[in-house]
Design a protein around this nucleic acid. Structure first.
Length: 430
RNA sequence: UCCCUGGUAGCUCAAUGGCAGAGCAACCGGCUGUUAACCGGUGGGUUGUAGGUUCGAAUCCUACCCAGGGAGCCA
């Protein structure tokens, strides 16, 4: 008998097929047993009727517990009474493993409890849908960059020192010395861009910050494209095209999953270039006009970002931040050195900063001065200085936080549901 | 690191100084179309931990642990 995926069940109406899956839920009424079977590709109701199948099989159906694994065979029928529109008239069942008492019921649960059972929580429709959308977003990002002839260059995860010297790093023994888990692959991408032109890395990133908010993880995934011979303007154009492509592709390819997570897709449909651009100076004016007390020279807080983003229907670029509040490698604006050629992209609907990027310093003397000003160890940055000594060119890049993009596109209020096994301030289990 | 809120049965919660409870889950029984099925029954507790106040503490106080939200920092 043919073994089929539930996602393709509609192609087998009238046939007898075999499903391999798990019991998501069971309802029984004496001589009827309704099994909701899931197989990772979908859900279907299987109905066993006493008297129509061997008593032994009926008995087995009746004894199944939530999340037991089974191989069930039956005839596929269209039936309006069944959730999903199709059901399986059971002809035989083989329990593969009878599950113990399952900890996650179909009722409401608190986040802490569900996180303790994250490895089982993933089996629920909502969590599966989020993971499928995450997968689509990753695929869309890679396809977009690959089509534009970017080369994927993997950055190291074990690094000898801080990339930016700002955030707290996780350290680990490295034989007789200390290594740190990478907080960014950017500096390495700058080296790769000088070799290959357009490159990107896509990997995990680690920050030991004791952040405890809905926007932070200690381990998260970041895409970091870097382009030689590209200025800030070209950088922003690529970003808005990338984000638009990703959003439109999820809307096309993951309609069912977006419905499962109950995303209102109205505002996503309008995500197309160009995105509005607001200078830092203008952003400060907007905040002050809206009654927010904000002084030029400070960095925006979460609340400020939300106020700014609310002024626009689309994601908005805030560009040319004060040089002092950005990383040491940001190139100053030649006409106003107190501001730099940096830009962040703020997502709508309060999802905050999803991209941070800018044009890098290409002048060797200025870069050397900045490394000194920021008290960075010169030996550790010697190789980075070399990129300015041997054929320095204008270049730009950015880092996109995958989980924040997934949260925005799915409309999820906390980033912890956007990654299979989140690492949070005090959570490293499971 | 700081501020706010919370921790009671496997889960979601009630009990505000006076007998620790309900719904769901589990188990037993019933039901031929259930939709988080329903109906009847049974078992289930060191009230986060340690100390203190009190005749008496889930309830008040102190410390700690854990969680949630936020600040700072960032993607």
């Amino acid at each position: 008998m043919q073994s089929v995926d539930i996602s393709h069940i509609a192609e087998h109406v009238g046939e007898e097929v075999k499903l391999e899956g798990w019991v998501y839920n069971k309802r029984s009424s004496g001589s009827l047993v309704f099994l909701i079977v899931r197989d990772g590709t979908g859900f279907i109701q299987a109905v066993a009727v006493k008297g129509e199948i061997p008593d032994e099989d009926f008995q087995k159906c009746d004894e199944l517990t939530q999340e037991s694994s089974i191989v069930v065979s039956g005839k596929v029928k269209a039936d309006k009474r069944a959730p999903g529109g199709y059901e399986l008239a059971v002809t035989g069942v083989r329990p593969v493993h009878l599950a113990e008492e399952y900890p996650i019921s179909l009722k409401k649960h608190g986040v802490d409890f569900l996180m303790d059972w994250r490895h089982l929580w993933l089996r629920t429709p909502r969590q599966s849908a989020i993971l499928r959308i995450r997968h689509e977003i990753i695929g869309a990002i890679r396809d977009f960059l690959d089509e534009r002839e970017f080369v994927l260059v993997d950055a190291p995860i074990l690094t000898p020192s801080a990339c930016e010297g700002t955030t707290t790093l996780f350290s680990t023994d490295y034989f007789d010395s200390t290594a740190y888990l990478s907080q960014s692959g950017q500096l390495y991408m700058e080296a790769a861009a000088m070799a290959l032109g357009k490159v990107y890395c896509f990997g995990p990133t680690f920050r030991a910050e004791k952040s405890k908010t809905r926007r932070h993880l200690t381990e998260f995934w970041m895409v970091e494209p870097e382009m030689a011979w590209v200025d800030l303007d070209g950088n922003l154009k690529l970003q808005e095209e990338l984000i638009s492509y990703v959003v439109q592709r999820v809307l096309e390819e993951r309609k069912n999953e977006l419905a499962t997570v109950e995303r209102d897709t109205g505002r996503l449909e309008n995500i197309k270039p160009p995105f509005p651009r607001v200078s830092y100076d203008e952003a400060v004016e907007i905040l002050n006009k809206r009654g927010v007390e904000f002084e030029w020279g400070n960095d925006f807080g979460g609340g400020d970002e939300t106020v700014l983003a609310e002024q626009f229907e689309l994601p908005v670029f805030v560009h040319r931040y004060p040089t002092d509040i950005k990383a040491f490698y940001m190139k100053p604006d030649p006409s106003r050195p107190e501001i730099c050629l940096s830009a962040d992209l703020l997502a709508p609907e309060g999802y905050g900063e999803i991209i941070g990027g800018g044009q890098r310093i290409d002048d060797p003397r200025l870069l050397a001065a900045r490394i000194k000003e920021h008290d960075l160890p010169e030996e550790a940055y010697a190789w980075y200085m070399d990129l300015r000594k041997f054929g320095s060119v204008p270049h730009s890049g950015f880092g996109l936080g995958l989980e924040r993009v997934v949260a925005w596109i799915c409309g999820i209020d906390h980033i912890r549901e956007t990654i299979p096994f989140p690492r949070l301030l005090k959570r490293i289990y499971p």
